[in-house]
C-alpha cells in the first residue's frame, strides 16, 4: 500500500517513448481460467482460454468444449454450459452463492485435462452506508468524485472490491479495479474514494461492494500492479501472478487465473 503511493509519483519521468517490441520473447502457452461466484442471482460466468504473445493485439484464444462444474462444501454441484461466446461458460440463472460456504471450480477440457480451484470461502460483506458523487471538473472534464461509506466489521480481517458501472456500463479498465483492506481501519466507519469519473448530469452510478478472501485480494492486487506500470526499477519483480487453479493430474503445470467467491452489496446514485 505504502509502496504504491511511493511509486505513483516516480513512475512517469522525463519520458521518451520507443517500443522494443520486436525484441519480445514468446513464452510457452498456458491455460487461463477466470471466474467468480457471488450471492447474487446468476448466471455466474467462467472463461477458459490460453495465453497469447504479448503483442498479439487480439483477444486471447478461447478453449471451447470443456466441461465445467462448481461444487460447494455441502456436496451441491452446479454445472456450467458454454454460452454463445466461445470459451465463456455460465451457470443457470437460479444458481446463487451462499455466505459461509466454500466453492470449488472444476474444468475438464476436451483433451481430458482436469483443472481445479482451491476451495474459496464466500464471506459476508457489510452494506454500503452511503454512496456520494461530488461533482468536480478536472482538466476541463466534467465528472464526479465517487466515494462510498461503510462500517467495517470489527475484529475480523476484511478485504473489499468495488465495481463501478455508469448507466449499466461496467468500468473495467485496469485502473477501475478498486480494492481495499481494513488492515489499518478495522471496525471503523470509513469513507473510500473510488476516484474521479467523467460523467454527464443524470448519469446513473452503480457501485457493487464485494467481499474478498485474503488470497483473492492479493490476487487482484497483483493483477493491478502487474498491469499498471510494471518494469520500473521501483516496481516489484515482474512475475506471473499466482492464482488458485491447478491441474489435478499434473500439479507442476503452470495454470493462470482465479476462481473467487464474494457476497455483494449494491448502491446507486444519480449525478
Amino acid at each position: 500500500m505504502v509502496r504504491r503511493i511511493v511509486y505513483l509519483f516516480l513512475l512517469i519521468t522525463i519520458a521518451c517513448e520507443h517500443s522494443p517490441e520486436d525484441e519480445l520473447p514468446i513464452g510457452a502457452t498456458k491455460t487461463v481460467i477466470q471466474g467468480w461466484i457471488t450471492d447474487q442471482p446468476g448466471p455466474h460466468a467462467v472463461t477458459v482460454s490460453t495465453t497469447a504473445p504479448y503483442n498479439s493485439n487480439q483477444p486471447a484464444p478461447k478453449i471451447s468444449g470443456a466441461q465445467l462444474s462448481i461444487w460447494d462444501d455441502e456436496g451441491n454441484v452446479f454445472s456450467l454450459t458454454e454460452s454463445t461466446e466461445p470459451g465463456t461458460y455460465q451457470t443457470h440463472d437460479t444458481v446463487r452463492g451462499v455466505i459461509g460456504r466454500y466453492y470449488t471450480l472444476q474444468v475438464i477440457t476436451q483433451e481430458g485435462q482436469r483443472y481445479q480451484s482451491l476451495p474459496e470461502l464466500l464471506g459476508p460483506v457489510p452494506d454500503i452506508e452511503s454512496l456520494t458523487c461530488q461533482p468536480e471538473t478536472q482538466d476541463d472534464i466534467e465528472g464526479c468524485m465517487l466515494s462510498v461509506q461503510l462500517i467495517d466489521p470489527l475484529n475480523q480481517s476484511n478485504q473489499y472490491r468495488w465495481k463501478v458501472s455508469i448507466n449499466n456500463q461496467p468500468q473495467d479498465l485496469p485502473a477501475d479495479i478498486r480494492l481495499g483492506t481494513d488492515e489499518f481501519v478495522d471496525g471503523s466507519q470509513v469513507t473510500v474514494s473510488l476516484g474521479f469519473y467523467q460523467s454527464q448530469p443524470m448519469d446513473v452510478f452503480e457501485v457493487e461492494q464485494l467481499s474478498l478472501t485474503t488470497p483473492a485480494y492479493d490476487y487482484l492486487l497483483n493483477i493491478t500492479s502487474q498491469s499498471l506500470g510494471l518494469g520500473t526499477i521501483f516496481s516489484p519483480a515482474a512475475t506471473s501472478v499466482p492464482g488458485n487453479i491447478f491441474n489435478a493430474g499434473d500439479p507442476q503445470e503452470e495454470v493462470l487465473g482465479y476462481f473467487g467467491a464474494s457476497s455483494v452489496a449494491v448502491a446507486t446514485v444519480i449525478k
Binding site: G27, S49, Y54, I223
Partner: peptide, 14 residues
C-alpha cells in the same frame, strides 16, 4: 512473454 485477460484488463505474463 505472454498475456491474458482479467475482465477488461490485459495482464502481462512472465
Amino acid at each position: 512473454d505472454g498475456r491474458y485477460e482479467f475482465e477488461g484488463t490485459i495482464v502481462p505474463d512472465f
